[in-house]
Each structure stands twice: as C-alpha cells, then as structure tokens.
Amino acid sequence: MDIVMEHKLSLFQLCDSNFPTGAFSHSYGLESYIQENKVHNQETFSEWLRVYLNEQLIYSDGLACHLVYQALEEEDLQKVWKLDRLLTVQNLPRETREGTQRMGERMLNLVESLYDDPILSIYRKRIGAKQSFGHPAIVFTMIAHYLKVSKAETTLFYLYSVVSSLVQNAVRAIPLGQTAGQKIIHQIQGDLAKAATTIGQLDEEDFGLVSPGLELSQMMHERINIRIFMS
C-alpha cells in the first residue's frame, strides 16, 4: 500500500465513532430538542443535523480545522494556541465548552500513545499549565497534518467524524433504527462535502457564528431533568 493511502487509513481510525474520545456522551443541544419532541424521527433529526452542521459546526470546529492546518503549514504555533482559545471562548454554553475540552484532552492523550509528533506533547503541556484548553478539532488537525493528509480532506473527515458520532447518539436517544441512522449518514455526505468547500472560502471574520436557537438549546440543556447526555 502506498504511503498516502496508509496515512489516510490512519486518520480514519480517529474518525471512527468507536474511537474513545467521549463523543458518545454529548448531544450539543440535540437532547433539548428531543425532550421538547421537536426532534422525534429520521426527518426531524436530519433537519437538526443539517442546521447544526451549517449554522454552527462549520464556523467553529470546521473553520478551526482549516485555520489550524494553515497555521501548522506556516509553523505558526502562536496562531494554533490563539485558535484553541478562540474555539473555547466562543463556545458560550458551559456544558458544551467543558465537554469539548474534556474530549480534546482525552483525544490528545490517546493519540500521544499512537504518534510521536512533538507538537502533541507541547499542546498537552500547555493544557496542563492552563495556557491552553484542548479541543478535538485541533488534535485531529495536528494528526492529519502530521500524516500529510490534505487540508480539505482533513476538514471533511473531521466533519464526518462529528456527524457520525451524533447520528449514533441520535439512534440511541430518539431512538431510531440502525438502518435509519445509516441512511442519514449516507444522505448527509453531499452536505459534508459542500460544507468543507464552504469552509475553504470562509475567513476568520466568520469565526464562531452561531444561530440563536441552537445555542439556546445547548444552554437550556443544563437544566434538563432526566438526561442521557452531558451536553
């Protein structure tokens, strides 16, 4: 197998919804919609997923992948740390902010046992010293860059990993059938490719945009009584 393919395969490992980062315990506000019965089947979940992708994810994690990759290409680590902070402080609902931070740390520890990219330990030390927060999109991009996977593919694969975890969560929580879940993942692939293209055309001015309802659902999740997700 040629080295490029091998490297892509290595990145696929991180996209697997079984990769233990803790993504299975976060719904990013989806659970609020489920409890209000606004998301209750394949159709309503697909609608939520598209809005989440296009009105929040591309401007936060997605744009971060793109910008972090650029910064790594330019060996501008200060920029990476700046984006780590920006990603964290634009995430205003406490549960999603803290949950994402924990996922970032967990993912970082895991990939450090797989790869000896020196930047990983720099990132971990910064987090330990409370100079950085930790974010899965940044860890993912560090590995993708290390594996020399292209910038556009990095963004696309990251979006896929988030979306496939969310679908698995929805299958458990709504609940949906496994076939319905796979249909959703199949149908959203065109949207993911489009989102990755859009991200390539965004600039830093667009960072952190979010639509009000999504964010509100993430804040309201804090006071949901019976919950299966941490956000």
Binding site: Y59, R85, L86, V89, Q90, L92, F207, G208, L209, V210, S211, P212
Partner: peptide, 11 residues
C-alpha cells in the same frame, strides 16, 4: 488582556 468571551451572532 486574555480573550475570555467571543459572542458572535448573525441573523
């Protein structure tokens, strides 16, 4: 001097 809130909404 540290960024602590980045609140960005667009309708």
């Amino acid at each position: 001097n540290e960024l602590v809130v980045y609140d960005h909404i667009r309708l």
